[in-house]
Design a protein around this nucleic acid. Structure first.
Length: 350
DNA sequence: AGACCACTCTTACACATTTG
DNA sequence: CAAATGTGTAAGAGTGGTCT
């Protein structure tokens, strides 16, 4: 169980009146404003309610899924502005995503997995089986949707200064000790986003905290992101050459089907936003960072929900969304996504 | 717990071969 | 000669086992 964030010891009124400030979050992202006491207080209360009231009454599976749905930017699809195909969920996908989030039954036709691709087992109305059964072939397909979203985000970030190569051969990188006939491929490699000029070798992965029987995987009931750590270990074991130093780095961009992203994914978006904002006029950099961050998390979260929805039905999605990739919007088109800096300018209520 | 392995099935992709 | 088809490899995530 994670320690609750917020304050551990309640400050005295006198201390607050004397100007004491809450602890500054270490993982504060650019464009994130420095929070005051209200944020810490409500966060502490929310987490307390979640741990003491909400979770104890839920089934283990529902607990694991709730944890999977939490975390930074896990709900970005709910606030995504559908002004662009990349940040738009179809009505059908939105309906499925909302039902998944509320753990309501999905409109399924079949009650068995299969027939020809599939294990023949009973499927549940929540889509848990379809999202974890490795025998339908949908897992391999759904991963592509998130992978393409990462490619899109990386391309928008590095622009013409860098390069993003999808499906890069491992032996084409600078990783040491790879035989030239090695056929392993990386999901995407980003050049021009690393301060040292190295290659970011990315592997996007989307894992489920529940098994195909709907039972939680070990550790997922009590710990946030337990399956993300399993996925990271698995990927690091698959690419040992990329962990041995040098100009290239392995980034495991992990996500859970509830919407949670791992630390690496959050760091990458933060770094990409910094790279992109360097090309903006200095006076606009803070706003640009905030705006691009919002846009990219919306893009990634929408893609993740698209992937989950297409798998939850147990049938392939009709068409791959936006196969052609336009170059992405200009800065002035995204700036209105930026958070307003400074305190709220709403009128004080009586 | 965690690391590791061998296994499940289907999909995606690159390359080779055949066909019109 | 180009288009269509076939083939081989790796990847995708999960399962279940063993060992430490």
């Amino acid at each position: 169980m994670r320690p609750p964030t917020g304050w551990q010891e309640c400050p005295s009124w006198r201390a607050i009146a004397d100007g004491a400030r809450p602890p500054v979050a270490t993982d504060r992202s650019l464009g994130d404003w420095p929070h005051g006491w209200q944020h810490s207080a409500s966060r502490t209360r929310n987490l307390h309610f979640r741990e003491r009231t909400l979770l104890p009454d839920m089934s283990p599976s529902a607990c694991a899924l709730l944890r999977s749905q939490a975390g930074p930017h896990a709900g970005a699809w709910l606030t995504a502005i559908p002004a662009d195909p990349a940040t738009t969920l179809s009505p059908q996908a939105m309906q499925l995503a909302l039902r998944r989030r509320l753990r309501l039954p999905l409109p399924l036709r079949l009650n068995r997995c299969g027939p020809s691709p599939g294990c023949g087992g009973l499927v549940d109305v929540f889509g848990d089986h379809a999202l974890a059964c490795p025998r339908t072939g949908l897992l391999a397909r759904r991963a592509k949707i998130v992978e393409r979203a990462w490619v899109r985000v990386a391309r928008e970030a590095v622009g013409a200064d860098g390069q993003v190569v999808p499906q890069q051969w491992l032996c084409a990188t600078t990783a040491p000790g790879v035989a030239p006939d090695d056929r392993r491929r990386l999901d995407l490699v980003i050049y021009g986003a690393s301060p040292m000029g190295g290659a970011l070798c990315c592997d996007a992965t989307l894992v489920s905290p529940l098994t195909r029987t709907g039972q939680p995987q070990p550790g997922t009931v009590a710990d946030d992101g337990a399956m993300l750590r399993v996925a990271e270990r698995r990927k690091r074991a698959a690419y040992p050459e990329l962990s041995s130093g040098g100009p290239q780095r392995l980034l495991v961009l992990g996500s859970e089907i509830g919407g949670r992203w791992n630390e690496t994914a959050q760091h990458l978006v933060r770094d990409l936003a910094r790279v992109r904002a360097q090309r903006a006029p200095p006076a606009l950099r803070a706003a640009a960072t905030s705006a691009w961050t919002r846009r990219w998390w919306a893009t990634l979260a929408v893609a993740l929900q698209q992937a989950v929805s297409s798998t939850a039905l147990g049938s392939p999605w009709p068409a791959p969304p936006h196969a052609s990739q336009p170059p992405g919007p200009e800065l002035d088109r995204v700036l209105d996504l930026a958070e307003a800096a400074g305190p709220s300018r709403l009128p004080l209520r009586p």
